[in-house]
Design a protein around this nucleic acid. Sequence first.
RNA 1: GCGGAUGUGGCGGAAUUGGUAGACGCGCUAGACUUAGGAUCUAGUAUCGAGAGAUGUGGGGGUUCGAGUCCCCCCAUCCGCACCA
Length: 1050
Amino acid sequence: MQPEKKQYIDMEFKHQEIDKKWQKYWAEHKIFKAENKSGKPKYYVLDMFPYPSGAGLHVGHPLGYIASDIYARYKRQQGYNVLHPMGYDAFGLPAEQYAIATGTHPAVTTEKNIRRYREQLDSIGFSFDWDREIRTSDPSYYKWTQWTFIQLFKHWYDHKEGKARPINELTDIFANEGNGNVEAANDCERNFSAGAWNAMSEKEQQEILMHYRLAYNGYGMVNWCPALGTVLANDEVVDGKSVRGNHPVEKKRMRQWFLRISAYAQRLLDGLEDIDWSPSIKEVQRNWIGRSQGAIVYFKVDGHEDSLEVFTTRPDTLWGATFMVLAPEHELVESITTEKQRAAVEAYIKTAKNRSERERMADTKTVSGVFTGAYGINPVNGDKIPIWIADYVLSGYGTGAIMAVPAHDSRDFAFAKHFQLPIIQVVTSEDEELKDPQTWEESYDSKEGIMIHSGFITGLPVKEAIRRTIEFLTEKGYGYGKVNYRLRDAIFSRQRYWGEPIPMYYKDGVAYPLDESQLPLELPPIDEFKPTETGEPPLGRAKNWKTKEGYPLDLNTMPGFAGSSAYYYRYMDPHNDKAYFSEEAIRYWQDVDLYLGGDEHATGHLIYSRFWAKFLYDIGLTVKEEPFKKLINQGKIQGRSSFVYRVNNEKYAEYLLWERIRKEGMEKEFVRNFHEGHRKFDFYHPGGDLIIEIKSREKLEKLSSPYEEYVQNSKHKLMLIPVAEIIKDIDGVFAKIKEAIQDDRKGVLIKYDKKHRLPLLFVSKDVEGRKVFSSPIHVDINLVENDILNIEGFKAWREEYANAQFLLSPDGKYRCGYEIEKMSKSMYNVQNPDDLIARYGADTFRLYEMFLGPIESHKPWDTQGIEGVYRFIKRFWRLFYAPGGDFLVEDTPANEAELKVMHYTIKKTQEDIERFSFNTAISQFMIAVNEFTAMHSHKRELLDPFVRIMASFAPHIAEELWHRLGHAESVVYAPFPEYDEKYLKEDSFEYPVSINGKMRFKLSLPAGLTDKTKIQEEVEKHPTAQKWIAGKTIVRFIFVHKRIINVVVK
RNA sequence: GCGGAUGUGGCGGAAUUGGUAGACGCGCUAGACUUAGGAUCUAGUAUCGAGAGAUGUGGGGGUUCGAGUCCCCCCAUCCGCACCA
């Protein structure tokens, strides 16, 4: 009997062995290797690559990877050549912070973390082509990040051609005609002729060019984070704090590298039209780009040469402009302020400066400002209007100056009201009765309407009025139409070590790029990872940080988004040392077909990537303008925290006593929370003149003399009861209270014997009164099953709980509460994928992550639910093997009913995979397994295709069973089966029959039957129908083929 | 304040084009088997009601033979933006 036993073991479903076996097989045979040359159509599935943190993966991380892996595997089975790579965003602050603290080189930490990530990723059975792995911190990779930076430096943006062009084409234009006709993205304030240009020194020319380059070095207000010792990009700051680490950030004027992403604002906006991304993420990007269409208007300053430039989206309301406001930082403030107002203006600027960015943002209600003494002249009617400064006008947006139209703008309105400035209404709706705007409660939203009091545009609708006003301004030279963007240039320097060195050096104070042959410029070793004593970035510590010629190199490194902005192209040809990627590779792969990642990258990575992609496209390197055709944002997996309820003994004692009083029907005789003078007592019984105070023994002892004193003065009886006595002996306590009420004495202190000690007490969730006397404490979810606490485990969890006692639910169990929160260590709700995979196997884990719900929605992780999926996997296995180990698969042909189930399952799951509805596909697998089990179907004709459709979801078990079915090749390339409609056809259809829209009964009719009269006859024969129709007339009979029958009666 | 998304049993969710609301799974209840398991199987499980039946997709209205789905108004939650001129 020995061999039989052996067979038995062999035929059990053992995921630990099966997982390992096939993972090894796939790796050894390089099953997932993608070729850059193929007759097959290409499909590129990409995941946002992870930053390898020290904590490893929790169950939330692989969600997107599993979804993309299923799709990648599905596409392979559909005959596509699939590129599905993975790598690491390996530069980053945590490893560097750790280096500063411990001296461990960030490369060491990163390597260690990557190894751990790789182990975890491998255990889930992903179909990555690991031969294409990249790491952003690898010099052979960041060589190309540096190379791209140099290309950005060497290009400018020509709005006429709508693309980036080499900088030498710009210098040619300058040399021939100066900069008068150039329509470039720039921040150059000088106008010069060809002659002037040619006469400039090299240094002067370079300084001019810096205002045109797409990567430029300049002064700007930057986000300086003192705690991190570096500047940050706008998307790395939220609410005035750093996203990483939550440290305060301040505005500081510094010289930094910038990327002129603003040049691409319009194209970044337009590109959103053509890509398949979620509406919400497109909306976030639109907001971030912040396009507003309007006009620049010049206001002459009365008695000055200068004029003020104002941006407005509503030039039609110029006639309603009653004052102007400048940002306190505006450059003309000083020159236009009158002597009389100077002191007030300077004082205001000083306080405005002292207010941090955060304060200014938080405080949007206080109206503040000061008059400069100067007047602007309204170009449309010559009116003199006062010029104020106020910090509600931002220096960084538009021109830092506005015309205020208080009637139609709420902030201007508040300002006008506060400083009693005039308000003129210029827009009205047709049926509006005009009232004096000075009496208005709020400004009037005027996006639509008819102009009044507005010169030549009076009577026109708003849209038309805007158009006519811009025409007028342009004609007279008073202004012009303009589009403004909120998108700021990206700050590109980081005063940090663990990033790509910026490949620039300085000669005579002018920045020059390294020659491309010098790349990569590798990170030098340094002794410590902190800034230098003189406040220079860490690279200032490097020995010999200069070019061969001896010129000093830049001390900054690049920000996190540098390495991730074009990594998706590098995967196409990751080992190329001659080019970023070969032309052959880019022509074949072109772009990412499907990109999966979290929506937290909406304004960072996903905007920068689109910008880099457009630049690389402009310079002819790539073939598609948008890098990511379809984007799916996987939802986060939230933690499900469990709570125990710790009893507050004093509150519990009060609760117990009060409940007892109520049980005795004495609640009307007592007063709770009795106040006398400054004192407050728990209970008072006026009839017996008895005060009851419940406190811990320690407190009662401490307060004993004040109580003595109080009793002597007040003449009440005062009963002091230790908390423990009530909890342990409520009957005894209550008897004593009754006794005390009868007691005739006055001014006595009734004390209590102290017999009992109190343990630490926890109360089950559904115990009455729990909310009143307990507070929730997080408990490790591993100690809880179905909300029932493992009491022994809990006692062992923490020393202080070792002697804890429990108030259990009526069923004798301790029931925990729960809440959905972020998954985090501090809430003890983290699920570790390694444990789950060890227990249930990779396939169950993959299926369960997908089964939780739609890929895009956020959902809580239910520790229990995985059992159901595990049962399904085992039932699936049992279609092939009997519990005793017999191989059940038979070659007899399947019957109609079986084929119907199989073909419907193929159809349904294929449709579901294609719309990324993996949870419903898995439901269908379950239904099919349930039905085959019920029908005792073990036929090859059914199971062979079943294994193939399951292969992308549960690759390990599928591969195992595929081979046991007798196939020698991997299931990875086994074609996804095609369903045949003929098996899905029904001879009859069971119609739901409704009477007046309510389903009453079901009626089976031949599927081909469409004759309404005949059907109506059939329906009327039915007893249930007769019951409902009786005494009424059928006014309408609705028949929808293969859907429904509805009888309308009256 | 503006913009976006979401709202369905005790829980996660399904219903793809306006056509049987609650598929599938968890949990729960009862039972079977037993090598007593964190195993397997069977039946039940939206609410009220003994039943017939009534009610039911955040609330209110509307369109329709028929609405979770379409339209209008309101509420709640989450996310993003926020003196943006």
